[in-house]
């Protein structure tokens, strides 16, 4: 039996007509791609949760205000909102006073309230964890293009629109990301198929 996939635009229309389940379907469909993209771009689980939540609150308000006019291009639209939200939250975070220890280190950097270590211990030695650490070491602009192209599967044109740049800039950033990742892979002598 084949399952018909309802287009994002139709779900949004249904939600506007009062169908709450349509919104839940939309959230369920895109949560993994949006959350993973944000997490890989900002490298901070807490911040990613905040950005994800604020992004969807904004999405809800925009839809209800009749501002959604992107037909079935929901994902690039949502990622653009998430990116702007990330920039705003990172700016706010930078304005917050930092509490430092006697050696000048940010004490919150060392507090592991969220049980990340448990998760990280499990995957410490494997390739996935290594990829995350390589991506983390890329300059922000390269990391962003890499995640949006290879993970979120957006076109360079869509990425250029989201990041307010042009296609050539995005392609250039991707090229440098590939060069840098290859260097890191060679350094750690890991080869992938």
């Amino acid at each position: 039996m084949t399952k018909t996939i309802i287009a994002d635009g139709v779900l949004i229309k249904r939600y506007l007509e009062g169908n709450q389940a349509a919104f839940e379907t939309l959230l369920k469909r895109h949560k993994m791609r949006i959350f993973t993209s944000v997490l890989n771009i900002v490298n901070d689980h807490y911040l990613a949760e905040d950005i994800f939540q604020e992004t969807f609150v904004k999405i809800i308000h925009s839809i209800r205000a009749g501002k959604y006019n992107h037909e079935d291009k929901f994902l690039p639209w949502a990622l653009r909102i998430a990116r702007n939200m990330a920039i705003d939250l990172l700016r706010q975070k930078k304005r917050l006073p930092t509490v430092v220890d006697s050696e000048g280190n940010d004490i919150f950097e060392h507090l592991n309230i969220f049980d990340k270590s448990q998760e990280e211990l499990h995957i410490e030695a494997d390739e996935i964890s290594m990829l995350r650490s390589w991506i983390r070491r890329l300059p922000e602009e390269q990391r962003e293009v890499l995640v949006l192209r290879n993970y979120a599967d957006l076109s360079f044109k869509e990425i250029a629109e989201i990041t307010n740049t042009n296609i050539n800039t995005c392609i250039g950033r991707m090229h440098y990301a590939v060069i840098n990742l290859r260097k890191m892979m060679e350094k750690s002598s890991v080869r992938v198929k």
Binding site: L27, K31, T36, E49, E127, L146, L181
Partner: peptide, 20 residues
């Protein structure tokens, strides 16, 4: 080679989803 590196899928917490 770079494209073949697989990203780990992550999900928001149940609390975040509930709030949304």
């Amino acid at each position: 080679e770079v494209k073949s590196l697989e990203f780990t899928n992550s999900f928001p917490s149940a609390t975040t989803e509930h709030i949304i």
